[in-house]
Design a protein around this nucleic acid. Structure first.
Lengths: 194, 194
DNA sequence: AAATCTGTGCAATTTAAACTTTACAAAGTA
DNA sequence: TACTTTGTAAAGTTTAAATTGCACAGATTT
């Protein structure tokens, strides 16, 4: 078949990279964030150095405002950060370059929030139950007693579950997970041995 | 203060249960599914026995069609199943009653899908690269060679990452995770010892 | 066979999320 | 001081997701 010119080759390579970025964007939705988060992650990652809002807007064809919104979100998710570049007035953003670390950051951000919300609800309900219990008398219907008891058990199970999630988060965040599920880099020839 | 009648107490208990259901619905969004999935999960869970589309529609105030859609989704996510009830023509749906198991099912469903998609993309790109490599000649620009090399490395990292996720999924699905992050039920008095 | 019930495909509608436009404050520059 | 540049707040628009209403097929009952 026809050969490729240098420029054509470059373009082909770029289109491979774009496929990767697209996939990152897709996959990121699994974390419950907009695919644009993943897209920016991919773009900055592939770019191999920090980027400005303008260059991101340029690359995605989206508005600078949106870039600002997304980068802020990414920072709050702990998967990006501003990087000071001397001589430039613009903010430069860089991303976590370790995939697994990104996974952990997102996992942690999401579930910590859930645990927090749950803990406060649990406290509230325990209090409410204690309050309601004071109104239980001998002539309270059997139904009420049973339901109350069940609610208690329910809360106990919840507590166990959210404690588990909390421990799970710690298990990831501390990196202990890697002791049991290690990352094995593939055995491609010329593979870099960090 | 004023005392509570039996009915009032029941209502108060119900409203506690509703708060729990609401929270389940909220939390479920962390798995990237609609909160209605969580709401139905919560409702059926609290109901303590299988429910029909009609009773669900009744409970949520939503259309039966939507109930059907959501239940199907839940079944495909492995967190609900139809249950045969003799004497009834309606389908009855029940849900996984173990919180942690639900977590694992959702985690597994989501990430298995991601791994699968990625694997097929990786294969495609490896092939494309092998193809492009045949066009590399001595007069190919240095830039092209570097980019090509980088792309290779990129794919190696991807491969390592998705293998990790795949192992992670197995780690959860097999229940091995519980050996390292156990579920500890809280020490409430009268706590049931399964 | 006619009548009813049940679940779901499909198009239409509503609601929520993503994204843009405009405007402006803060900080830098001339 | 007046003029740019940069990031983002706020409100508006577009796009996508959630939800409904209608219709109908398949199964069940009368």
């Amino acid at each position: 078949m026809a050969s490729f010119s240098n420029d054509q080759l470059l373009q082909e390579i770029k289109s491979c990279e774009d496929l990767l970025t697209d996939r990152i964007a897709d996959n990121m939705e699994t974390f419950g964030v907009s695919s644009t988060v993943g897209r920016l992650l991919g773009i900055i990652y592939m770019n191999r150095e920090a980027m400005t809002l303008d260059s991101l807007a340029d690359e995605t064809g989206m508005s600078k405002t949106r870039m600002s919104q997304v980068m802020r979100q990414m920072i709050s998710l702990n998967i990006a950060e501003k990087e000071y570049v001397k001589g430039s007035r613009k903010d430069h953003y860089n991303v976590e370059r370790d995939y697994a670390q990104t996974f952990i950051s997102l996992f942690t951000s999401n579930w910590s929030e859930v645990v927090k919300r749950n803990t406060s609800l649990e406290r509230r309900l325990r209090e409410q139950i204690r309050h309601l219990e004071t109104f239980l008398t001998e002539d309270s219907s059997e139904d009420v007693k049973v339901r109350m008891e069940r609610l208690q058990q329910e809360l106990d199970e919840w507590n166990a579950y959210y404690n588990w999630i909390d421990n799970l988060v710690a298990f990831f965040e501390s990196g202990e997970i890697f002791n049991h599920v290690p990352i094995v880099s593939s055995e491609q020839e010329g593979g870099s041995t960090k």
